[in-house]
Amino acid sequence: MKMSTVRLTINGLRVHVPAGISVATAIALVGQPFRHSVTGEPRAPLCGMGVCFECRVRIDGVAQQRACQRVVNPGMRVETDG
């Protein structure tokens, strides 16, 4: 069975990822960093369920989106500030 894929951009990179996965997962799959904390430490998803905000990214220009709560969509623009 051929898995359908979705094309989106993450930090300006054009990527193909499996359909149905979360934006957080897409970022991990293509090996992009997540956010940096206020003192500059690299961070990554912690809770996976929308409460910790460690996975927050900008999606289509809207900041503070939790990447673990959104499924990838064709054409999405994701920026992680990583």
Partner: peptide, 27 residues
Amino acid sequence: LLPFPGWTLPGVTGAGGLQALAKQGWP
């Protein structure tokens, strides 16, 4: 989730957190 030295490193998650991420397709 209780703090311990190193718990903010990328790759440290909750237990249910890992399960949730796995189901989202986490590699």
